[in-house]
Every structure is written in C-alpha cells, then in structure tokens.
Nucleic acid binder design. Structure first.
Lengths: 109, 109
DNA sequence: GTACAATTCAACCAAATGGTTAAATTAAGT
DNA sequence: ACTTAATTTAACCATTTGGTTGAATTGTAC
C-alpha cells in the first residue's frame, strides 16, 4: 500500500471533485501550458483559475515554474504515480468485493 | 470511455474526499453493516454518520435497505464498477503522460 | 397501545469553497 | 525609469460542508 496521509488523500480527491480542475488536468495531459492558456476556455476570471491551480498544486497534482513573464504549469509525474498506485489499490479492493458478489450470485444459480 | 456526467464525477470524488467516508467504504468492503455498527468506531454523532452515508448514497457508492428495525448498508457493485472504469481511464491517460516524460528523459540521456 | 431502540430530519453553527473585483507583484520591452 | 502583460493577492460574498443537539419517525416487543 502506498504511503499517503489521510490529509493528502483528502486534498487529492477534493482536487479531482471539480470539473474545471479535471478539465485543466486533461489539458495538461496533452502538454505543459501557461496560466493564461489554461484559463481561456473557462468562462471565469483568471483569478478563479489561479485559485484552482492552487488547489491542484496543494494536492501535488501539478507544479508551476516561472519562465520569463509566464508561469508554466505541468502535471507532476511523481505525484500522479502515487495517486495511480492508490487508485489501483482501491480498484483491487473493490474488485475483490465485486468478485465476492459475483461468486455469491454463481452459487445461487 | 465510461458515460458519467460531470456532476456524477463531482459527487463521486467529493464522496471520496473525506477520511470518515473512506473508512466507511473500507469497512463495507468487508461486508454489509448497519448504520449503528458503522458509526461505532467514529467519534461523532450518529446523525453525522447518517449524513456521511447520505453523501455516499448520492454518489452511488452504497445503498441502504431496511431489515427489521435496522438499516443495512452495502457497497453498490454496479456503481463501483463504473467508478473503476473511470479511474482506469485516467490511470491510462496519466500513464501515457508518464511514459511520454520517461521517453523524453530517455532521449536526453 | 406503550415503551424502547435504530435511524433520520430540522434547525442551527463555524469553517471551507468557488466565485467576484480591484490592487499588488513581477518580468519584458522600449 | 515607464508601460504593458501575466499572474497572484486581498477583501469580499453566497453557498456548501461537516458537525452539533433535540424532536420526529419507524419497527419490535411487551
């Protein structure tokens, strides 16, 4: 099992629980981007998008680095890997439950 | 790709973004349980746990049925399967990003 | 039908969330 | 230095969240 504190998981799932933030992640999965570019497709202020990026950053899902006068945003591979492992664990855990149910249904037949 | 509305995903991830609710899910993965049993290990009121169950139910992660004077709570296999598929998609999506990065690193060497 | 046990509902509260606008920061170009 | 562009910060606001307590509901047992 991956070592992730409860707080980290809270932050991770909370970050994913918003469509705007999920869209940003999907955009970033196609390559790095500036804040302005990320904001353009969303009809909300730049400040709002900046806040969403803050949430994603605290969750460890992205990082920002300054390049010239721009902030360049990237998915954080390391953190994604950890997230992936956690998700896999639960997939397995829930999968077992699923299998148990299916076994039960088989027996009933 | 699994058909899940943005609102459903919001609810799903929001439901997972709380330690108490995650613990409840883990408990339930070991088998069905009553509300009282689920509440006992948590030091908060029964009403609070009942609310958490409401969140999990709205997210489609559990269902409740009355058995005698108890409410029996179960993981909802169907919904879990959908959730699993969605998570898998993102694992793959993020995995590709990860691979792209690794390829890039390989090329640099 | 009275009493009790399991659970939910209602009303309330403090803190966090997701948005706004306006001011502050930071770097680039002239 | 001055201006402009990119982004963040600050102050604010409405709504949602996660908890509380006390009353209402629903089913069991007498």
């Amino acid at each position: 099992m991956v070592k992730l504190s409860a707080r980290s998981l809270d932050r991770l799932f909370h970050a994913l629980a918003d469509q705007t933030r999920r869209k940003i992640l999907v955009t970033l999965s196609r390559g790095e981007s500036t804040v302005g570019e990320l904001a353009r497709p969303h009809k909300m202020s730049l400040a709002a998008v900046s806040k969403h990026l803050g949430v994603l950053e605290t969750a460890g899902l992205i990082d920002r680095k300054r390049v010239g006068s721009f902030q360049v945003v990237n998915l954080r591979a390391e953190s994604l890997q950890t997230a992936n492992k956690w998700l896999s664990f639960y997939e397995k855990c829930w999968g077992q439950k699923l299998n148990a149910l299916q076994d039960l249904l088989e027996k009933k037949k």
